[in-house]
């Protein structure tokens, strides 16, 4: 069943259509929420808030455009509205505790041989990349997430973010440049 048919069904009063839509897009949306936010708890909240906004505004959805892109637009706008306004000190406190938790986790891993070494290195790499991506300003970070997340075209990203293509290209280039420098620094430091 297509998205448009499911939306029509929901608007006509068939409630289970919402369950099917959520099931269909849950992984993709959750992945985006996870990359946008700084921790799992925020990602869960963003996931729920986005779905609620989607169903609240479903009667305003233009069926000529793609539902998936509309969903991403709502997710990013919700993130910008709500999660981006958090005070800086709160994130600093969270980072401090997450570092402590990391140490405990490392000690636990060292004392047991539950996880294969490759997995630990992979996880650490992923954490480093997340840290570097999260350190970028949102105006560079969000286009980069969308660019690599599903390899959207410039047109699609500019539509989702509602910014001109020229601005988008410039932000993407600057963001990628900063990110590459940051990752090169990590590699030089480690290597």
């Amino acid at each position: 069943m297509s998205d448009k048919e499911l939306i029509q069904l929901f608007n006509d009063g068939t409630l289970y259509a919402s369950d099917i839509l959520i099931e269909k897009y849950k992984s993709l949306l959750y992945r985006l929420c996870n990359k946008l936010t700084k921790n799992i708890s925020d990602a869960d909240d963003l996931f729920q808030d986005t779905w609620l906004k989607i169903f609240k505004n479903l009667n305003k959805y233009d069926t000529k455009s793609s539902f998936e892109n509309w969903m991403y637009t709502i997710c990013i706008n919700t993130y910008k509205d709500k999660y981006n306004k958090k005070k800086r000190w709160l994130n600093l406190v969270k980072d401090y505790f997450s570092d402590d938790e990391k140490d405990i986790e490392w000690k636990r891993i060292e004392s047991t041989d539950e996880l294969p070494e490759d997995h630990i290195i992979e996880k650490e790499n992923s954490d480093t990349i997340k840290e570097k991506v999260d350190s970028l300003d949102d105006k560079y970070r969000i286009p980069i997430i969308l660019y690599y997340f599903k390899e959207f075209s410039y047109n699609e990203i500019s539509e989702i973010l509602n910014i001109p293509i020229g601005t988008l290209k410039s932000r993407l280039n600057t963001g990628r440049k900063i990110l590459k420098e940051l990752l090169k620094e990590v590699e030089n430091h480690e290597g």
Binding site: K26, S27, Y30, R31, D44, F47, K130, I145, Y148, F149
Partner: peptide, 8 residues
């Protein structure tokens, strides 16, 4: 990194 599979 951005295509890591994630499930809620």
């Amino acid at each position: 990194y951005f295509s890591e599979e994630m499930e809620p």
